[in-house]
Amino acid sequence: MTLRVAPAAPEDLCDAVAVIHRAFATLAGRIDPPSAALTETAKSLAARFDGGGTVFVARLDGKIVGAVCADPKPDGSIYLDRLAVDPALVGQGIARALVTAVEDFARETGHDRVTLGVRLVLTDNIALFRHLGYAETGRKAHPGFSEPTSMDLEKSV
């Protein structure tokens, strides 16, 4: 089995959305408020390219099995968003490969760090990012919540 990660082509976006929806659907009932990732469309992913961002897809033997978005921010960072792996393939290094692609993109485009947010209840995700060298920079509460619901993380690249 061969895993390849590359920027998505326009014809890849429907498959990328499908993977994002499958991955984030597994969080239903675990996170509150629900993730906006379930509202992504091929059109909303395509719009990321207009702002200088990109969408990476991971292919396993040619089939799209993962996706992640990378968007430049005014503070000089790249924001990693919508990291998604087909639920049947979690634990096989796909997420790590997608994160590495975002980090490489950040360096190649002259950005000094990668930032992201992760829900506090998703302890496995937090552990993954910490293992990959990300450090907590703060916590936030989603609108309508008095206590933090997410953690901000950052890594210099």
Results as ranks from 00 to 15, higher is better:
18 A>L: 08
109 T>M: 04
42 A>L: 11
67 A>C: 15
49 F>I: 11
2 T>L: 11
69 C>D: 15
12 D>Q: 10
153 L>Q: 01
63 K>W: 05
25 A>Y: 01
2 T>E: 13
99 V>G: 01
60 L>P: 08
104 D>E: 12
58 A>R: 05
144 G>K: 03
65 V>Y: 15
137 T>P: 01
55 V>Y: 12
8 A>R: 10
38 L>D: 08
89 L>E: 02
70 A>D: 07
100 T>S: 12
9 A>M: 14
26 T>I: 04
12 D>K: 10
43 K>G: 14
29 G>Y: 05
142 H>T: 00
138 G>A: 01
89 L>I: 07
108 E>S: 03
1 M>R: 10
97 A>K: 04
138 G>D: 04
25 A>C: 02
128 L>Y: 04
74 P>W: 04
86 D>Y: 00
49 F>Y: 15
62 G>Y: 06
138 G>R: 06
60 L>S: 14
53 G>D: 15
35 S>C: 11
48 R>N: 12
59 R>Q: 12
11 E>V: 11
67 A>V: 12
104 D>N: 09
60 L>T: 11
69 C>W: 13
35 S>E: 09
28 A>C: 02
110 G>N: 01
144 G>D: 03
35 S>Y: 12
146 S>A: 13
11 E>D: 14
156 S>D: 04
60 L>V: 08
31 I>T: 07
67 A>T: 08
134 Y>L: 08
17 V>H: 05
26 T>W: 00
124 D>E: 09
15 D>T: 06
23 A>D: 05
145 F>D: 05
80 L>I: 07
84 A>H: 11
131 H>Q: 02
54 T>R: 07
81 D>G: 01
102 V>L: 05
42 A>F: 10
18 A>E: 11
48 R>T: 07
128 L>Q: 06
44 S>C: 11
20 I>F: 04
99 V>Y: 09
61 D>Q: 13
102 V>W: 00
45 L>K: 07
75 D>W: 11
56 F>C: 08
47 A>T: 13
69 C>A: 14
103 E>F: 02
150 S>N: 10
155 K>D: 04
81 D>P: 01
84 A>F: 06
138 G>T: 01
37 A>T: 08
35 S>H: 11
38 L>C: 08
46 A>R: 15
109 T>G: 00
119 R>L: 04
147 E>H: 14
112 D>W: 06
115 T>M: 03
44 S>H: 12
14 C>H: 14
94 I>C: 01
157 V>T: 09
68 V>A: 09
18 A>S: 02
